[in-house]
Amino acid sequence: MIARSFKTAVRCRTLFLMLLPAFVLVIVFSYIPMAGIAMAFQQFRYGHGFFGSPWVGLANFRFFFSSGMAWRVTRNTFLYNIAFLILNTTVQITVAIMISEIGSKWFKRVTQTCLLLPHFISWVVVSSMAYGLFNFENGLINNTLAVFGGNPIDVYGNPRAWIFILPLVNLWKAVGFGSIIYMAAIAGLDAELKDSAEVDGANIFQRIWHITLPGIIPTILILTLLAIGQIFRGNFQLFFQMVGDNGLLLPTTDIIDTYVFRSLRFTPELGMPAAAGLYQSAMSFVTIMLTNYLVRCVDKDYALF
């Protein structure tokens, strides 16, 4: 038995070698940090390192939860991700259906190209654009408001405004990418079904409701499941670039990821952000496993793994 698998291993030695680079990189950059979560139970200091820092049990977690931060950042992370999921999915599907129904090739191509453009720029550039649009003194939006006699809005001093701005900015960047995926799903649907529905006298709304939408449900489900699995992982780039360290806005914009990063940067005590990170990873893991398990119970084909 052992001799045989040894023989197979020898036969597969080149295949092992071909896996080796990816294997080593994943061990180093993914699995070793997983072992590093033990830091969450330490009073970690740079000077002492991982093996020299004292163990403090659950003290870091106790601090994180009793400071009130845990609730605030968890709530924000969760609610923003729900808002992103609902808004993005709805708009992306709507756009995909609309563009798919439009006959003009030229119009399709041009709009697709423009809608995807925001996906290609970095979040730093997005933050520069946001500054140009929103800043109080010279922002485009405030100037336009002023022309029409409105009062300028200082969004950088108004935490509530970001509850609307962040989902919109996120949508702006994601709309093209998502709708192209849905368009591909629509293009893959059976054209005959659509034609026969038309022959049978279904109007366009009935056809979309009874044929197109049910047809893309597998795609919607997969993308939604993936998003639900990430529901406790915030979009760090979006929140950090849009809000930065503006303390005034943090009550409505601080997510787990930005909180961990700020603690990492501003405190010498690393056990605490490590504990927050472990909390986040554990929550994500449980969510993914639970969602996948439930989906498996309902319909095995739709489960992710």
Binding site: S30, I32, P33, A35, G36, G229, F261
Partner: peptide, 26 residues
């Protein structure tokens, strides 16, 4: 023969991560 084992080994990293702090220290 070990392809599924390795596939899961890679896939697992998308389910769980050590977080930013250990990654940074590493």
């Amino acid at each position: 023969p070990w392809r599924n084992l390795f596939a899961y080994f890679f896939f697992f990293t998308t389910l769980f991560s050590g977080g930013l702090v250990p990654y940074f220290i590493l």
